[in-house]
Computed example of a mutant assay.
Amino acid sequence: MPIETMNVFPMIHSITIDKENDLVTELVQDINDAEGIRQNLLESVATVRMYERIKFYPLAPPTFIEDVMGSFAQMGLSRHITISDNTYHEINGYLGCTRVWELPLVLRDQVEKSLVGYEVEYDSETWEILDIVQLEA
């Protein structure tokens, strides 16, 4: 049983900014705990397995990292990937910006450092999620 680990950082839901003081005052991520991470990963694995059953992957078998994490999970494999996400975010206090990467560097850095991440231990053959632990801040 080949056990591997990866760090994941849930996608950003909303950010509140104090523009006058260049300060991120609140960051809310889409998933807030280890059980939410587990549930999202289990749903993502089930989706990939369903697509595999209907022969959606004709040329190469699906992989955990590329197909589960890259296509379906609501999290990134690094802080940088999570803040670079191209989906719209609810950004309060900084008009005109709808994505983290549009913010000035001083604010992007604060968002990146504020992200809560988790270490996920999984079986790379069966895709079973074995353990999830929140990373130290």
Rank of each mutant, 00 (worst) to 15 (best):
residue 1 M to D: 11
residue 137 A to V: 13
residue 88 Y to F: 09
residue 25 T to P: 05
residue 98 T to R: 03
residue 35 E to L: 06
residue 123 D to S: 08
residue 59 L to N: 09
residue 62 P to A: 08
residue 8 V to T: 01
residue 44 S to F: 05
residue 16 T to M: 05
residue 136 E to F: 15
residue 122 Y to M: 05
residue 100 V to S: 07
residue 65 I to G: 08
residue 108 R to S: 00
residue 28 V to F: 07
residue 80 H to C: 07
residue 48 V to G: 00
residue 103 L to A: 03
residue 101 W to N: 08
residue 78 S to E: 05
residue 33 D to E: 10
residue 70 G to L: 08
residue 110 Q to A: 00
residue 57 Y to R: 04
residue 26 E to F: 09
residue 85 D to E: 10
residue 34 A to C: 11
residue 47 T to G: 00
residue 70 G to D: 13
residue 109 D to F: 07
residue 43 E to K: 13
residue 36 G to Y: 04
residue 66 E to C: 03
residue 47 T to Q: 13
residue 58 P to D: 10
residue 137 A to H: 14
residue 85 D to V: 04
residue 105 L to R: 06
residue 119 E to L: 05
residue 110 Q to E: 04
residue 53 R to S: 09
residue 109 D to K: 15
residue 55 K to Q: 14
residue 73 A to N: 02
residue 48 V to M: 01
residue 85 D to A: 14
residue 17 I to F: 02
residue 37 I to H: 07
residue 94 Y to Q: 02
residue 79 R to P: 00
residue 112 E to K: 15
residue 51 Y to N: 01
residue 70 G to H: 06
residue 75 M to I: 03
residue 48 V to T: 06
residue 69 M to F: 02
residue 105 L to W: 03
residue 72 F to T: 04
residue 37 I to K: 01
residue 48 V to K: 08
residue 34 A to P: 07
residue 37 I to T: 10
residue 37 I to S: 11
residue 128 E to R: 09
residue 35 E to N: 15
residue 78 S to W: 13
residue 118 Y to H: 08
residue 47 T to K: 12
residue 96 G to F: 14
residue 110 Q to C: 01
residue 136 E to D: 15
residue 18 D to Q: 13
residue 30 D to F: 07
residue 106 V to G: 01
residue 31 I to A: 04
residue 115 L to F: 12
residue 5 T to H: 06
residue 5 T to C: 10
residue 89 H to G: 05
residue 70 G to C: 04
residue 136 E to I: 14
residue 88 Y to L: 06
residue 77 L to I: 07
residue 88 Y to I: 03
residue 59 L to Q: 10
residue 98 T to S: 07
residue 35 E to D: 14
residue 64 F to K: 03
residue 10 P to G: 02
residue 71 S to T: 08
residue 109 D to Q: 14
residue 124 S to G: 01
residue 74 Q to Y: 12
residue 110 Q to N: 05
residue 77 L to Q: 11
residue 4 E to H: 15
residue 22 D to C: 13
